[in-house]
């Protein structure tokens, strides 16, 4: 589903990602973890071209999205993203947040878009909030709406950039529960997270980044019980 080959990303003289290569199969759930500044978010943001890679190739569904001929907008329609700070459209109601892109970008009728939106709101348990503005929602509710908004485009891949980092502790679970339910639907997911318990529970694989290098790429039980690198061992000692 996603294949990353020798990906390099620099911001000016600063090389943030150094020669990253990996693959994510269809339906796989990958947790990306590592210390702050290790390049986790940048890696994720390269997959929907919010960051343009400096070198290397990324294939999504067999299409080389780093090729200049590639239609960036098409790629993004197929790759949903959930942000740390939700980024809901504050001047639109919850319903409008969900129907805007499907109508504008995919050309769905209002009725069709609303139907998809209502189904999704039900799945994230917020159908009664459809006509509210985001400012009336709690952080956890906002993030559930943001997940539903990304899903409304019916993407094949979902990217999560620290989806629970900005939440009050008591709201983390409701968001993680929605994500767990999403895992069961078999959608391909890449999740940058600090929730180690969650990563261990739902991920098929863990990518550990440090200093821009992909240091470890292992199944969660292997990674969490017997990390190979010193760096990962140190990291896990601190966070577990």
């Amino acid at each position: 589903m996603i294949r990353i080959e020798h990906l390099v990303k620099s911001f000016g003289p600063l090389e943030v990602l150094k020669d990253i290569s990996t693959e994510v199969d269809s339906g796989e759930v990958v947790a990306i973890i590592g210390p702050s500044g290790s390049g986790k978010s940048t890696l994720l943001r390269c997959i929907n071209l919010l960051e343009i890679p400096t070198a290397g190739h990324i294939f999504v569904d067999g299409v080389d999205i780093t090729s200049p001929k590639c239609d960036i907008l098409k790629v993004r329609q197929n790759v949903g993203m959930v942000f740390q700070h939700f980024n809901l459209f504050p001047h639109k109601t919850v319903m409008e947040n969900l129907t805007y892109a499907p109508m504008k970008v995919r050309g769905l009728s209002k009725a069709d878009a609303s139907k998809i939106a209502m189904d999704l709101l039900e799945k994230v348990g917020l159908s009664e909030k459809a006509d509210q503005y985001p400012s009336r929602l709690s952080g956890g509710q906002k993030q559930r709406v943001a997940i539903a908004r990304a899903l409304a485009m019916e993407p094949d891949v979902m990217l999560f950039d620290e989806p629970t980092s900005a939440l009050d502790p008591e709201m983390v679970k409701e968001v993680l529960d929605v994500m767990k339910a999403l895992v069961r639907t078999g959608i391909t997911m890449a999740i940058v997270t600090h929730e180690m318990g969650f990563a261990r529970e739902v991920a098929n694989r863990v990518l550990f980044l440090d200093g821009g290098y992909l240091v470890e790429d292992a199944p969660p039980d292997v990674f969490f019980s017997a990390p190979k690198s010193d760096r990962a061992q140190q990291f896990l000692e601190k966070v577990l």
């Binding site: 098409k74 790629v75 942000f83 980024n87 459209f89 805007y100 504008k104």
Partner: peptide, 27 residues
Amino acid sequence: VDKGQREASMSLGVPYRPMMLDIILPQ
């Protein structure tokens, strides 16, 4: 306007013009 608004629009595949007209400029 928070740059997250732009990123959210971009991540949904919204082209420049509607992004500006419907999301950024109203705010």
